[in-house]
Simulated scan of single mutants.
Amino acid sequence: MGAFGGAEGIKRVLNYAANPLFRPTGVPTHKGFAYLDWAPVERLHIVPSVDLASNRWTLFTARPASQPQLYYRTGAYVNAGLRIDYAITDHVDIGIGGRNLFDDYYTLTDGFPEPGRTLFASIRARY
């Protein structure tokens, strides 16, 4: 069984005299990720994960060019995921899983919401 977690704080200060309303975009103040790799039996791995970030600045894009730029905060999010892998042989694994399991609506940049709940299946061959 193994686990990894990471968290970081990001502090950016940018003063732009030509545009005092300017905000640095795209980077949250806090971000973290953690997962646990649990193998209850040989060849089976269950990997829950959580990804979180605080809000970030983005630029409102649906505005006439004649209006001044408008920035807003996108909002924080917490996403949960789960992956289950099984080694059929020493060289072939199959897996199923999901991302954003609670179907949280969030956006990182104006006009582009992130995907809702997604499910997947995979097969991996090593040679």
Rank of each mutant, 00 (worst) to 15 (best):
T29L: 12
T29Y: 11
T29A: 15
K31M: 13
K31F: 11
K31C: 04
K31S: 14
G32M: 03
G32W: 03
G32A: 10
F33P: 01
A34R: 00
A34I: 10
Y35A: 05
Y35R: 09
L36W: 09
L36T: 04
D37P: 00
D37C: 03
D37R: 09
W38R: 04
W38A: 15
A39C: 10
A39D: 10
A39H: 15
P40S: 07
P40M: 08
P40R: 05
P40F: 06
V41K: 08
E42I: 06
E42N: 14
R43F: 05
R43Y: 04
R43D: 11
L44I: 06
H45I: 14
H45K: 15
H45P: 00
H45Y: 13
H45D: 11
H45T: 15
I46Y: 06
I46R: 06
I46F: 09
V47N: 14
V47P: 01
V47E: 10
P48Y: 04
P48F: 06
P48V: 03
V50A: 08
V50I: 15
V50C: 04
D51L: 10
D51F: 06
D51G: 07
L52N: 01
A53C: 07
A53N: 02
A53T: 02
S54V: 05
S54A: 07
S54R: 00
N55Y: 09
R56S: 05
W57V: 01
W57K: 02
W57L: 02
T58H: 00
T58V: 05
T58Y: 00
L59E: 08
F60A: 13
F60Q: 14
F60N: 11
T61A: 11
T61F: 04
T61R: 15
T61P: 00
A62Q: 15
A62D: 14
A62V: 09
A62Y: 08
R63M: 11
R63N: 11
R63L: 15
P64G: 07
P64K: 06
A65Q: 10
A65W: 08
S66L: 12
S66E: 11
S66K: 10
Q67D: 14
Q67L: 14
Q67Y: 09
Q67W: 09
Q67F: 12
P68W: 03
P68Q: 05
Q69P: 15
Q69W: 07
Q69S: 13
Q69E: 13
Q69G: 13
L70N: 11
L70Y: 13
L70D: 13
Y71R: 05
Y71E: 05
Y72R: 10
R73L: 13
T74I: 01
G75M: 03
G75S: 03
G75D: 01
A76I: 01
A76K: 03
A76R: 06
Y77E: 00
Y77C: 01
Y77W: 06
V78H: 05
V78R: 12
N79K: 07
N79C: 05
N79E: 13
A80C: 05
A80G: 11
A80N: 04
A80L: 13
A80T: 10
G81H: 02
G81W: 00
L82P: 00
L82C: 02
L82Y: 01
L82E: 01
L82K: 00
R83T: 12
R83Q: 12
R83D: 13
D85R: 11
D85M: 12
D85L: 09
D85A: 15
D85H: 04
D85P: 04
Y86F: 13
Y86S: 02
A87C: 07
A87I: 02
I88L: 15
I88R: 06
I88V: 15
